[in-house]
């Protein structure tokens, strides 16, 4: 299974980005193969609107079935839910710590968007 993390960097030591739609990058980690890829999200970082929707689409296309981020807005949540992607919010400072918590089952699945659009 693949898990997506929002980040501003390119490896596990990088900070976990608190925003989803306008996260600079997504780190997609494959739990089974223990490998990862980084997807650039620059285009949505600068989008006038629809960043959350487009980012959710990117996550869905990456094949990830879970998203770990700081926060998730309503439009993004609708798309993620429709695509069957589970959302986990955490304030873990780095991708590595967020991954550790995820693996340990310490993150709780979010049932709804936790912030307004354009927060």
């Amino acid at each position: 299974m693949k898990v997506a993390f929002t980040t501003s960097g390119s490896d596990f030591s990088a900070p976990l980005e608190s925003r989803f739609g306008r996260a600079p990058k997504f780190l997609i980690y494959d739990l089974d193969g223990e490998s990862f890829e980084v997807i650039d999200n620059q285009q949505n970082l600068n989008a006038a609107q629809g960043a959350g929707i487009q980012s959710a689409e990117t996550i869905a296309r990456s094949g990830a079935k879970a998203l770990v981020s700081g926060h998730c807005g309503p439009n993004a949540f609708r798309v993620l839910a429709a695509a069957g992607i589970k959302v986990y919010n955490t304030n873990a400072p780095t991708v590595a710590e967020a991954l550790e918590k995820f693996k340990a089952g310490k993150l709780e699945e979010t049932a709804a968007a936790d912030v307004e659009g354009h927060w």
């Binding site: 609107q49 629809g50 929707i53 487009q54 689409e57 609708r78 798309v79 429709a82 695509a83």
Partner: peptide
Amino acid sequence: CGRFCAYHAIVSFGAKALVFAEM
């Protein structure tokens, strides 16, 4: 529909199309 829309007002990939009317 989603590929056509420049404003991400309708999205569909592997699931039924979702409409974001405000966009």
